[in-house]
């Protein structure tokens, strides 16, 4: 059996501040198979971006990966020397950030930025790389690419810039694309186009995609599986139909209740009363317990571990008890 493209096991990421060591990611495990799209949802601060950054090795001091393993197609990449992980970034893992307006260097032509990236990872000649850059721009849907390649970022609209960013992310045919809220900063009208572009590219090239988003509609339409994060942990993970239609974790239930029915509604996930604890004040036991309608004594002392429930995996004591009584 071929290993999954990405396999994360018990990942922990800490930020050392002068007052305390804050654990932003605490025991996160998940896989993404070839050609699969994993959606990641969760409130702001849940640790979605940090997880993505950890995978491509861009956690800067004072942050550090303090435990766990990250494997890319079977090889561990979490504590490679800086130079080796650099060679993987952009080549085997492509990254798309939230804001296309600020992701491109304003002083360089977009063509130069693409050519530079291609030539960093391949040994194409300048002209060949430029040709490839034009093809890439065409592939991501930029009209008249042979002209636009000499434009500067500010000459492109937000949606077009995000297409350029995507071209940059896929220019070395990576196995994995991490897209961190790729549409949040864009007009509603172009969001769908960008999402379907990412989905199409993933399908055409068999790329695994980790798609961080706040948009449950996008999750439902685009992803194969979805992970719900809360306070640096995965509350629930499973096939998208199951998790969306039949969420098990009380937090996931709340989230799914927040799926808008009409387009253009506020898609931010704000339905559950209260807010996520700050990293410095995560309660013992289940981090969700102060907001949970089902919380019982055990939730306040013991941390729930992931429990398999059919195709879903859920970290909640409710299901543990169910299992115990069944046994």
């Amino acid at each position: 059996m071929t290993p999954p493209v990405l396999s994360v096991r018990n990942l922990e990421v800490e930020f050392v501040t002068r007052r305390a060591v804050l654990r932003a990611i605490n025991g996160v495990s998940f896989d993404i198979a070839k050609g699969e799209v994993l959606g990641v949802v969760g409130e702001s601060g849940a640790g979605k971006s940090v997880t993505g950054l950890a995978v491509i090795g861009l956690i800067d001091p004072p942050g550090r990966i303090s435990a766990g393993e990250i494997e890319l197609s079977g090889t561990r990449i979490d504590h490679l020397p800086a130079e080796e992980i650099r060679r993987i970034r952009g080549k085997r893992i492509g990254m798309i950030f939230q804001d296309p307006l600020t992701s491109l260097n304003p002083l360089y032509r977009i063509g130069d930025q693409i050519v530079e990236t291609i030539r960093t990872h391949t040994n194409l000649s300048e002209t060949a790389a430029r040709k490839r850059a034009i093809d890439l721009l065409a592939e991501v849907g930029i009209p008249a690419p042979e002209k636009r390649i000499d434009g500067y970022p500010h000459e492109f609209s937000g949606g077009m810039r995000q297409r350029v960013v995507i071209a940059l992310a896929i220019c070395a045919e990576p196995e994995l694309i991490i897209a961190d809220e790729p549409t949040t900063a864009l007009d509603v009208s172009v969001q769908a186009q960008i999402i379907s572009l990412i989905k199409r590219l993933g399908r055409d090239h068999g790329t695994a995609v980790m798609l961080v988003t706040h948009d449950m509609g996008v999750i439902a339409e685009t992803c194969d599986r979805v992970a719900v994060m809360y306070s640096g942990r995965i509350a629930e993970i499973g096939p998208v139909q199951d998790v969306v239609r039949n969420p098990l974790h009380p937090y996931a239930k709340g989230l799914m209740g927040a799926i808008p029915t009409l387009a253009g509604d506020d898609k931010r996930l704000v339905q559950i009363p209260g807010s996520m604890p700050r990293l410095s004040a995560i309660p013992p036991g289940c981090p969700f317990n102060p907001r949970c309608a089902f919380a019982f004594d055990r939730c306040r002392v013991e941390r729930p571990e992931p429990i398999q429930q059919g195709a879903q995996s859920v970290a909640c004591h409710l299901f543990d008890t169910a299992k115990e009584t069944a046994a």
Binding site: I56, L58, G90, T102, S103, V165, A169
Partner: peptide
């Protein structure tokens, strides 16, 4: 600290570049 430097790093450019 800017985004485009972070993105340049995510593209795997060399530290020198």
């Amino acid at each position: 600290r800017t985004d485009y430097i972070r993105f340049a790093r995510a593209r795997g450019l060399t530290t020198r570049a």
